[in-house]
Write a protein that binds this DNA or RNA. Structure first.
Lengths: 122, 122
DNA sequence: TGACCATATCTGCTTATGCGGATATAGATA
DNA sequence: TATCTATATCCGCATAAGCAGATATGGTCA
């Protein structure tokens, strides 16, 4: 019961929903999310840690980067939620704007390496 | 997006989940919920008001009593949640204990009228 | 009307969570 | 090793939300 409440709490914040919507299109690193949502790094990381605790995303380290993706869980609630993320959440106007911003950013990324001067990564 | 977050927030608290589980078996008044959950009236009412704001329950007045029931909404998320409440949430051990406490209380209710001395209602 | 009951809301307090800048850590590279 | 990048966590602060007792409101019934 408490675990379930925690899962819903992870979903109860607009920025976290926006992050989840972005992750439906694939694994992303923190800097991608910063760029797409135009929010400070500490804000993104804090929300990601909340999502991790709620079991909604998992991260893997790849070099200096942390890549996050939607976590696939086998309980019915997680599966219903995942379906909802992919079918409904992504259709909201805000999600689509964010996805466009992400796409635009990714298009220039190899020149910028997360907005700075190093070579691109993936 | 904000509305959606608000809906999840309503689901993000154990006591509220317990209330929702109890309401799957039908309309209940505040005093039924107080008795089943063994919590003070102000606590129950506060959570009900949160659930009302999240669009998860509706209340109707019947005499001195307020009867709450799960609200039937037509958007996909609400429907998925309603299905989850009925299929999964009610199966948790805590939900079943609460339901038993409610049933036991209802069996003696006509003698007690919400735990006091007036005649029973329904 | 007056007493009583059920419920909502207020109050004062505590804890959880949000924020963004600052700092700490880990990997990459020179 | 020194330095740079990416990310996590810490900090101080502000707001939201939890709690339970107290009070206000609205209905019932004598």
């Amino acid at each position: 019961m408490k675990t379930t409440a925690q899962l819903f709490k992870a979903l109860s914040e607009p920025i976290r929903l926006r992050i989840l919507a972005l992750l439906t299109s694939g694994e992303r690193c923190v800097c991608d999310l910063m760029a797409a949502l135009n929010l400070p790094q500490s804000t993104i990381s804090r929300h990601l840690s909340f999502l991790r605790n709620g079991g909604l995303v998992t991260g893997r380290r790849g070099g200096q980067w942390m890549y996050y993706q939607l976590s696939i869980d086998d309980n019915p609630l997680s599966q219903q939620i995942t379906r909802w993320l992919r079918d409904e959440l992504v259709a909201l106007p805000q999600s689509q704007e964010d996805q466009q911003a992400l796409t635009a950013y990714l298009a220039t990324k190899d020149k910028k390496a997360c907005g700075r001067k190093a070579p691109g990564h993936q």
